[in-house]
């Protein structure tokens, strides 16, 4: 058996790469045999892994799903595909967490922020210089759709408060708090604990500066409720926000979201 573009294909003695191209994807212009670029005349062996690529072609939804299932298993992927994750704030935390969650195949994201991309965001947030001036919701959605056009990305250009958090995120599976402002972090956690029972939640506190990345932890506060950070590195006292350490925290958040979606309620 061969694996061709993530799918099993019967092996025949004497098969060459060109045979696969003719049978499966005549428009392919880049051929990989076990990860190496080869030509049409490359001889195949049983068990080979082949990729037939048409440069620039966007894969189908099925091909993308197959690629994710091959890596994460169909059981894991089904749970992630059916999940909705909300993200409050699309700065250094929210933009990086969103990219990670789309890459892993979470099926639906709801993104909320009222800010515009400015030059001083680029050093740590997942935006590009040609997006300066766009709403962060729109800019990030463009990027996410570039990674996976089949994910459902909903955006809300609002300044969140307790009422809007309940309205917009009332039905998500997991909610990520990615605010910069510590008062809003507290508003969000109070809202979830008092008014949104049963949803998973991952907040943040303490991720500024460039202290050791090993001090950033995911702590369980209550069932389904987590806080990521070192609990003390304040942006007012620890210096600026630096992409690497904010990114560590963002990926702790994304990882805990995935764990919750897969039924693992431990840090």
């Amino acid at each position: 058996m061969l694996i061709v573009n993530e799918r099993p294909v019967p092996f025949r003695e004497g098969m060459r790469m060109g045979d696969l191209v003719d049978e499966i994807k005549p428009q392919a212009d880049v051929l990989l045999l076990n990860g190496m670029v080869v030509g049409r005349d490359a001889l195949l062996q049983d068990g080979d892994i082949c990729s037939l690529i048409h440069t620039g072609e966007i894969p189908s939804a099925l091909e993308m799903e197959n690629a994710l299932e091959a890596r994460h298993s169909p059981e894991v992927q089904e749970k992630l595909r059916k999940a909705t994750v909300g993200i409050m704030g699309l700065g250094g935390l929210g933009s990086a967490a969103a990219v990670s969650l789309v890459k892993v195949g979470v099926g639906r994201l709801i993104l909320a922020d009222h800010d515009v991309v400015v030059l001083s965001n680029i050093h740590r947030q997942h935006y590009f210089i040609d997006q300066i001036g766009l709403r962060k919701t729109r800019a990030l959605k463009e990027t996410l759709v570039h990674i996976n056009p089949f994910v459902a990305v909903e955006t809300r250009e609002v300044k969140l408060d307790s009422r809007l958090i309940r309205e917009i995120f009332g039905r998500v599976d997991v909610l990520l708090e990615c605010f910069d402002n510590p008062a809003m972090k507290a508003v969000a956690l109070r809202t979830v604990l008092n008014h949104m029972p049963g949803i998973g939640y991952v907040g943040t506190s303490g991720l500024a500066g460039c202290a050791s990345g090993n001090t950033i932890l995911t702590r369980k506060i209550k069932p389904g409720i987590y806080i990521v950070g070192d609990d003390e590195s304040d942006v007012r006292t620890s210096g600026s926000l630096l992409a690497p350490r904010v990114g560590i925290a963002a990926h702790h958040q994304a990882n805990q979201a995935v764990r919750l979606l897969l039924g693992m309620d431990e840090p």
């Binding site: 704030g89 700065g91 250094g92 935390l93 929210g94 990615c178 605010f179 910069d180 402002n181 510590p182 008062a183 972090k185 507290a186 508003v187 956690l189 109070r190 604990l193 008092n194 907040g203 943040t204 506190s205 303490g206 991720l207 500024a208 506060i221 806080i227 950070g229 609990d231 003390e232 590195s233 304040d234 942006v235 007012r236 620890s238 926000l241 904010v246």
Partner: peptide
């Protein structure tokens, strides 16, 4: 019981109360 922010000034603590505080610092 999680206390709403607008009750912090009015809520009087009593002997034996158990208080849990989570403090947030800025950055995101």
């Amino acid at each position: 019981k999680i206390i709403e922010r607008d009750q912090y000034e009015d809520l009087r603590l009593r002997d034996g109360d158990r208080v849990e505080l989570i403090r947030f610092v800025g950055g995101g």
